[in-house]
Amino acid sequence: MIVELRTYHCAPGRLPALHDRFTSITLGFFDKYGIKQVGFWTNLSGPTNQSLTYLLQWESLAERETKWNAFQADPEWVEKRNATEAHKIIVERVEVQFMTPTAYSALR
């Protein structure tokens, strides 16, 4: 198993728009492409409260490449994502890390 850690850093005040995009658009495309989410989090404290962090679970990097690339290339997804940012950008920066569990991890 591989876990992908993704953190989206939003433009000031745009976190609610990102939440809305995930709940009304993105999660449907995740289901369509078999992208398994582990969970989503926002910051209660720290340097910013304008970010969303989430985890995706993959069997392999090959599975991730196939499913993520298909999702990103879906014309309907591209159209809907662009429409949500037509007047103002939502995400300024994305950080991505791939992690593999240790032998003693509860999640393996």
Results as ranks from 00 to 15, higher is better:
residue 12 P to M: 12
residue 10 C to D: 10
residue 20 D to A: 11
residue 31 D to L: 06
residue 73 A to E: 09
residue 61 L to E: 13
residue 61 L to T: 11
residue 106 A to L: 13
residue 52 L to A: 11
residue 9 H to Y: 13
residue 100 T to Q: 13
residue 42 T to I: 12
residue 15 L to G: 10
residue 34 G to R: 02
residue 72 Q to P: 02
residue 66 T to Y: 05
residue 9 H to V: 09
residue 6 R to G: 02
residue 59 E to W: 02
residue 46 G to H: 08
residue 74 D to F: 08
residue 102 T to F: 14
residue 71 F to Q: 00
residue 61 L to R: 15
residue 105 S to E: 08
residue 63 E to T: 05
residue 92 E to A: 13
residue 71 F to E: 00
residue 1 M to Y: 04
residue 6 R to S: 01
residue 59 E to N: 13
residue 34 G to E: 01
residue 70 A to Q: 05
residue 99 M to A: 11
residue 67 K to W: 04
residue 80 K to V: 00
residue 82 N to I: 01
residue 97 Q to A: 13
residue 44 L to M: 15
residue 87 H to Q: 10
residue 17 A to C: 06
residue 6 R to F: 00
residue 91 V to C: 07
residue 45 S to V: 12
residue 46 G to Q: 07
residue 24 S to G: 08
residue 13 G to Y: 08
residue 91 V to H: 02
residue 100 T to D: 07
residue 50 Q to F: 05
residue 60 S to P: 09
residue 24 S to A: 15
residue 102 T to P: 10
residue 34 G to L: 08
residue 104 Y to A: 15
residue 101 P to T: 14
residue 56 L to A: 06
residue 50 Q to E: 15
residue 4 E to Y: 07
residue 39 G to K: 02
residue 32 K to N: 00
residue 84 T to V: 01
residue 73 A to G: 04
residue 75 P to A: 05
residue 98 F to D: 06
residue 70 A to M: 04
residue 57 Q to G: 08
residue 47 P to F: 13
residue 55 L to K: 03
residue 53 T to N: 04
residue 32 K to Y: 00
residue 8 Y to A: 09
residue 11 A to L: 13
residue 97 Q to C: 08
residue 18 L to V: 05
residue 59 E to H: 06
residue 86 A to N: 03
residue 11 A to P: 06
residue 56 L to H: 02
residue 81 R to T: 13
residue 70 A to H: 01
residue 39 G to M: 11
residue 8 Y to D: 04
residue 39 G to R: 02
residue 55 L to G: 01
residue 60 S to Y: 07
residue 56 L to V: 11
residue 23 T to C: 05
residue 19 H to L: 14
residue 22 F to A: 03
residue 82 N to K: 12
residue 46 G to N: 02
residue 50 Q to Y: 07
residue 103 A to Q: 06
residue 18 L to T: 06
residue 49 N to W: 05
residue 39 G to V: 01
residue 2 I to K: 14
residue 3 V to W: 07
residue 3 V to A: 09
residue 96 V to S: 15
residue 48 T to N: 13
residue 73 A to S: 15
residue 41 W to R: 04
residue 5 L to Q: 12
residue 71 F to V: 01
residue 73 A to N: 11
residue 42 T to V: 15
residue 64 R to L: 05
residue 84 T to W: 02
residue 17 A to M: 05
residue 77 W to Y: 14
residue 2 I to R: 14
residue 15 L to M: 10
residue 96 V to Y: 03
residue 95 E to N: 06
residue 32 K to W: 01
residue 86 A to E: 09
residue 24 S to F: 00
residue 22 F to K: 00
residue 50 Q to W: 03
residue 66 T to G: 06
residue 60 S to W: 07
residue 99 M to R: 12
residue 18 L to R: 11
residue 75 P to V: 11
residue 89 I to H: 10
residue 51 S to M: 06
residue 93 R to V: 06
residue 43 N to S: 14
